[in-house]
C-alpha cells in the first residue's frame, strides 16, 4: 500500500477543477467530437471523486460505481459517435451550431 499524505479535500478540489474545465469545454466548443471529449472529462472528474471517497472511507461501493460509469461512458461514446457520423453524412458538418433541424 502506498503511504499517502494527500488529504481527501485536495482530490475533491482537483476533481471540481476538472469538472469545470469539462463544462466550459462543452459550452464553448462547436465541434461535436470535442464536446464528446469534454463530456468524458466531466465523467472522469466524477470518477475521481468516487474513487477518492471509496479509498478514504474504505468502502468498495464507490469503485463499483466507477466501473458502471465507465461502462455507461463506453456505451455513450459509441452511440454518440454513431450519431456524429450520421449527422456528418446528412449535413456535411460536425459543428453543433450549424445543425438546427430540431430547433423551432
Amino acid at each position: 500500500m502506498l503511504p499517502t499524505t494527500i488529504p481527501l479535500d485536495y482530490y475533491l478540489i482537483l476533481s471540481a477543477v476538472l469538472f469545470v474545465i469539462g463544462t466550459v469545454g462543452v459550452v464553448t466548443r462547436r465541434n461535436a467530437i470535442i464536446i464528446f471529449m469534454s463530456l468524458e472529462l466531466m465523467l472522469n472528474a466524477v470518477n475521481l471523486t468516487m474513487v477518492a471517497f471509496s479509498s478514504f472511507l474504505g468502502d468498495v461501493a464507490g469503485q463499483m460505481f466507477v466501473f458502471f460509469i465507465m461502462a455507461v461512458a463506453a456505451a455513450e461514446a459509441a452511440v454518440g459517435l454513431a450519431i456524429v457520423l450520421a449527422l456528418y453524412r446528412g449535413k456535411q458538418t460536425v459543428y453543433v451550431d450549424e445543425v438546427n433541424i430540431m430547433k423551432w
Binding site: 500500500m1 499517502t4 475533491l12 468498495v60
Partner: peptide, 13 residues
C-alpha cells in the same frame, strides 16, 4: 472533510 489518511482497507478493496 478532515480526512487525511487513506482507509486501512484501501489497498484491500
Amino acid at each position: 472533510t478532515g480526512m487525511n489518511e487513506l482507509s486501512k482497507q484501501a489497498a484491500a478493496i
